[in-house]
Every structure is written in structure tokens, then in C-alpha cells.
Design a protein around this nucleic acid. Structure first.
Lengths: 128, 128
DNA sequence: CGTCTATGTTGACATCCGTCGATCCAGGAG
DNA sequence: CTCCTGGATCGACGGATGTCAACATAGACG
């Protein structure tokens, strides 16, 4: 589950050179990537991810995450599960509490994929 | 809405906009961003976006987009509408055909938002 | 052991989403 | 004008999704 010794993960390996604006995604890649983007496609999950990442130490206990939201605790638990199954975060039980942290390579992969083209010459000179 | 008309986006600067891993997203921003990510959370839409962007000239006619997919033409039209309403692409009728092109600032916005933290401070760095 | 707290799981329910066939609208060609 | 073609819209249907209350599970602690 949780890799106990993630040292320095090479984010550039699978993340650097494949902006989707350069060449068309093949179907299998699209399915895989869409799963990650879909996990980000919910306001609660987006805030959860942001909240976890911005916690000091880069990790947060679930007890710190249920407060800021209007939804119930099981719902938070559900969203955390979605984020984890999407490969965006990982978690570990440590005594009484369960801690979550973001997996930077996953974010980096999506980020580089969305790298915009140099500039698309708008066909109308951007006046539309 | 989006007032950014930047032509050249500095993709190298990770301090550019506001990575969500630095500070928690507020709710309204999360709702707005989630709408865009949700639009990317479908394999067909992801491939559509990629296909449009990688077309020569940065734009593509709908007639070029219906072929590579197994879904019907109304479905493609539906997905294009979702992408357009999410602010990721724009379109224009030009004579008989309708052309779509990607809006780079939108992609850049999401990309910079996902900029990963410097590096994961291993949560298991020390036994506790 | 028993109990309390912190999380995850289950089942149910309402809503949303992707998909299709049928239809409608806008332009170009006769 | 009429016909044809590219594309959008409509209405419907099945499956996925977000949410909750209720219950289950795992440690901590007495």
C-alpha cells in the first residue's frame, strides 16, 4: 500500500515530455488519465487534495479534514478513497489516526500533460 | 470571466499562479476548477481535446473529429459542448463547417495549479 | 475484558452523466 | 425555391456518482 521509502521519485520520467496538445492521446492512455482527472472533478475532492498538500509536513490526519466541510464523515472517507484509488494520494494508519499525503509524481504527470502549446494562433486573431 | 489574454505562458515558473498544494482552495474556486477538471474526466473528451490541439493550425473541423471515435455524432457534439462550456475550447462556424480550437490559457491555469510541491517530504522519514 | 474514539464499509436513494435515435437548423449547390 | 449535408438539439434510457444514516472495525485505555 504505502511505500515506506519513497526517496526521490523521478517526476520527469513519465511526466515531462508528453503534452496532450502535441500528439493525440491513444485510447488506453486517455482512459487512464481520465480516471485521474475525474477524481479532481469534484469540489470536495479538490479542496481535500489542496488541504492535505498544504498541511505542514505534507500530510494530514483525517480528523483534520472532516472539519472544514459540510459533508458527513463517511462522505469524506469516500472521497479520500477515490483520490487514493486514482493514485493521487496515499495513506497510512499510525496508531489511532490515519494520515494522508499527496503523491507529487501524479500531480506532475497531469500538470505536464496540460502544458499549453507555445501559442495557438487564434484563427480570428482572438477577436471572436 | 477569464481576463487572461497572455499569449506566451511561462511554463517553467512554478511560482506562476497558485499551486493548490501551497494553500487550501476556497470553496468557490474549487467549484469553478472542479468544473474544468470534470470536463477532462472523460476519455472521449480527453482525446477530443488532444486531437483538436494537435491538429495542424491548432484547430479542427467537427467532421475531422467524428471519425476516430466509436461514439455517434450527437455524442461528439455533446462532448464538444461540455468542453466549450468548461472554457477549454472555443468554436466558430465558418461556412459549412464548424471549427474548434483549444484555449491555451485554460490549460495553463490547470497545469500551474497542479504544480507539485518541491518534493515529497517523506511522511515516514522518521519513526514515531 | 469492556468501552470509547477515529475511520472505513454498507445499503439505499436521488441525481447526474454518457449514449443513442430522431429531429431540427444553417448554408451551399442546383 | 428545393434538396442535400454538416452539425446541434431533444427526449429517453441505463449506469455511474455523491450523499447520508447505520453499522462495522481497529487501536487506545482503563
Amino acid at each position: 500500500m504505502s511505500k515506506s521509502e519513497l526517496t526521490v521519485i523521478d517526476q520527469t520520467a513519465d511526466a515531462c515530455c508528453s503534452p496532450m496538445v502535441r500528439e493525440p492521446l491513444d485510447e488506453t492512455a486517455a482512459v487512464d488519465l481520465a480516471r485521474m482527472f475525474k477524481a479532481l472533478g469534484d469540489p470536495v475532492r479538490l479542496r481535500l487534495l489542496s488541504l492535505i498538500a498544504s498541511f505542514e509536513g505534507g500530510e494530514a490526519c483525517v480528523c483534520d479534514l472532516t472539519g472544514p466541510f459540510d459533508v458527513s464523515q463517511p462522505t469524506i472517507s469516500h472521497h479520500l478513497k477515490v483520490l487514493r484509488e486514482a493514485g493521487l494520494v496515499d495513506s497510512e494508519r499510525r496508531g489511532t489516526w490515519v494520515y494522508y499525503w499527496v503523491l507529487p509524481p501524479a500531480l506532475a504527470k497531469l500538470s505536464s500533460l496540460l502544458q499549453a502549446p507555445a501559442e495557438a494562433p487564434s484563427p480570428l486573431g482572438d477577436a471572436r
